[in-house]
């Protein structure tokens, strides 16, 4: 019994990592209709920024560098949207796909040039400590990721609903022309949304670096996971990434025991296909008439 409780706890904690990684991806896709293939590389940049600050003479704690990552990568995302992606927003979907793929390649190769392809890790004193709850062992860093994922999801949902800018972002995601008629300046809202998304990806990178080793090539896998989590959780629901992340984490955790670690990815994708076959809008998404 304790063994299975631990598996469930591991699944929830892993789900927190996935959810935190996917919140921004889902926001960008839902509002801007951009499947941002550079998303994972922004998480990678967040991880490296955290590592640089941690290994600097100041030895900045990763929890303190997370807001710095948010601000710097948010600014970079804003500029990326304003200078590049806004030029093709009214074009065909594949143009943004192609452009973000190109940006991803630039970021990965710049990362290799700057930091080499060697894996790095951020290991503050508390990174190996765990909370013991009876027979359960819960690493503090994983618990922090889950707490931040829930906190950011709730804060983002509240921001989108109760603030003027949040409502404008929401409206833009639903109907570009109608939002424009209300006075929303679409290029600015596009850039702010991408800035927010890339900032959150940077913040996710800070927490990623606390939990996993990383190299400049981690982005591809992270983007794929974020894509799966967003499909699972469903677009159009701010809580979708949390739901999808927890579902994927749980499936992977249980699958690693039942079918073995070699078949975890295959099992997760089979279950994704099954869930989407039964509920195409995802677990938390709205059905489209």
């Amino acid at each position: 019994m304790d063994f299975w409780l631990q598996i469930v706890a591991n699944g929830l904690l892993l789900g927190g990592v996935y959810a935190l990684s996917a919140v921004a991806f889902s926001l960008e896709w839902g509002v801007l209709n951009i499947v941002n293939l550079a998303h994972g590389s922004f998480i990678m940049l967040g991880a490296y920024l955290t590592w640089m600050l941690f290994t600097s003479p100041l030895r900045v704690d990763p929890l303190l560098s997370a807001p710095v990552d948010f601000a710097l990568l948010g600014g970079l995302g804003f500029l990326m949207q304003r200078l590049l992606l806004n030029r093709v927003m009214r074009g065909q979907f594949f143009l943004t796909l192609l452009l973000t793929f190109g940006i991803d390649q630039v970021l990965v190769n710049t990362g290799i040039l700057l930091w080499t392809a060697d894996p790095r890790a951020v290991t503050p004193a508390y990174s190996s400590r765990s909370l013991a709850l009876g027979a359960l062992t819960i690493p503090y860093t994983r618990l922090a990721v889950l707490a931040v994922a829930v906190g950011i999801t709730v804060a983002l949902a509240s921001f989108m609903r109760h603030t003027r800018l949040g409502r404008a972002i929401n409206a833009t995601g639903m109907d570009l022309d109608a939002a424009s008629l209300m006075g929303v300046r679409l290029p600015v809202v596009f850039a702010l949304t991408m800035g927010l998304g890339c900032g959150l990806a940077g913040l996710a990178g800070a927490f990623y670096s606390l939990n996993f080793p990383f190299s400049p090539q981690i982005g591809g896998d992270l983007t794929l996971r974020a894509f799966v989590v967003t499909c699972l959780g469903g677009l159009g629901n701010m809580y979708g990434p949390l739901l999808g992340g927890l579902a994927l984490g749980m499936v992977e955790s249980v699958a690693s025991v039942v079918v073995g670690s070699g078949a975890v990815d295959a099992t997760a994708f089979v279950i994704l296909v099954l869930i989407l076959a039964l509920r195409p809008q995802g677990l938390g998404g709205r059905a489209v008439a």
Partner: peptide, 8 residues
């Protein structure tokens, strides 16, 4: 066609 923000 009204163009309301349907999910708001």
């Amino acid at each position: 066609g009204r163009r309301l923000f349907g999910a708001m």
